[in-house]
Design a protein around this nucleic acid. Structure first.
Lengths: 223, 223
DNA sequence: CGATTTCTTGAAGCGGTTCAAAGTTGGTGG
DNA sequence: CCACCAACTTTGAACCGCTTCAAGAAATCG
């Protein structure tokens, strides 16, 4: 651990992630009027600072949303998946680069189309606002991970977040490097952390890319 | 420096911060229909997870937007100032705690009021969306700071961001502890970094809380 | 002015990086 | 089907930046 004051203001819950449930109106819009499209592994879907020509809603596959510094360093803000939106209307340019981690399918809409729906249909506007705020909160959670937790707990936090449910066998589509660039550590540290989490009994691995969360309270539901 | 791949994708500009200019419609709304209010130093304006009863637009003073973990550690997401909004409508609860760093004045609006303006007036809706996305980008920039830069450059990045203009004498309203909790380092490290930045000639100090950016290109505008 | 908070500075220790090398995995073609 | 190659992962050892703990200096406020 480092920095951050201890001000003794213990909160019941730490930080909850509010999954956006109001997406329905948006989902329908994309399904009805969106163009289906596919991206191959590692294909760049959108480039930072390029004008937004399409707004996407992901159907299958995982996308890394990241930013490159001028020296070529990469920070992955988030891994986007099914139901996530890439791009916002009335935003002149992409503020991150989006790349397909594996094969990806999505539905695309022209920003103008979404824009006019925004004006006409209140539920769509509301759904988009909620999605934006949800992403916003996600970034804040990420910020907390990076400054509070040490590497091992940071990885565990991610794995917990990524797993749909405790005990499920989860396939990680991304590399150690991707994880490192997301969690602010080197790929070596990521690897070492996988090792110690496994040894510690927090996770079970099946090959390098499949894991299962052995919840601290999976069997014992006491307390 | 740590982690983060060098993929060699040099970009012209690193990450720009797009100041939200579309606030006008919102500003007018708050000025016309908002209730004026004052907060004393260190007063809690909003508490994480509490229901949002008012949405604020800051007029003077600085507010720290932060989150406390259950062990009482604090992460400061941002220091909000004049023109910044605290709280979003159609969001059931605060997702951070807001505290006055010094004396603060603001205008407050009931979320319902803002909500109905959102439905009726397109420019207000657009302004709010832009503000939300701007905050969003701000968090992403912050993430980049935390994972790319080492302490000294992190502080410099903040000081550069906080100064309205290079060369101006800037008064810092927050403590070293606040800065540390914002930048992910201890207050001691913050202090040491102030020292080395001063020695290095990047800034000039006037007491502990006034500084002046000695831009690397202030006088010499060459190249 | 004294008292309390805030800031600075020093020295030791640790977590994570860096550099290096060996081990795995998955895909391709003989 | 196996051999080979490239990409990815694991592991080791030395080093460095930041934290931690501790003490002293400066600033702020009643």
């Amino acid at each position: 651990m480092h920095s951050v004051t201890s001000v003794g203001r213990a909160k019941g819950t730490p930080i909850r992630f509010v999954p956006c449930d109001g997406t329905d109106a948006l989902a329908q819009l994309f399904r009805k009027r969106g163009a289906a499209c596919n991206f191959k592994k590692n294909k760049t879907i959108a480039s930072e600072e390029a004008p937004i020509e399409w707004v996407y809603r992901l159907e299958t596959g995982v996308v890394r949303c990241c930013s490159y510094t001028k020296d070529g360093l990469r920070q992955i803000f988030a891994f986007a998946g099914r139901g996530d939106l890439l791009g916002f209307p009335d935003l002149e340019a992409w503020h991150f680069t989006a790349e397909a981690v594996g094969p990806v399918t999505a539905r695309a809409l022209k920003p103008e189309t979404l824009d006019s729906a925004l004006a006409g249909e209140a539920p769509v506007a509301r759904a988009l606002r909620r999605l934006c705020v949800a992403q916003f909160e996600r970034r804040e959670r990420h910020l907390i991970w990076l400054s509070y937790l040490q590497s091992e707990d940071r990885l565990l936090a991610f794995l917990t977040d990524f797993a749909p449910r405790e005990g499920d066998l989860v396939q990680l589509p991304m590399t150690r490097q991707d994880l490192g660039d997301h969690l602010g550590m080197t790929l070596e540290t990521v690897s070492r952390c996988f090792g110690s989490l496994r040894r510690r009994g927090a996770i079970a691995m099946q090959g390098a890319n499949r894991y299962r969360l052995l919840g601290t309270k999976t069997h014992a539901s006491a307390a």
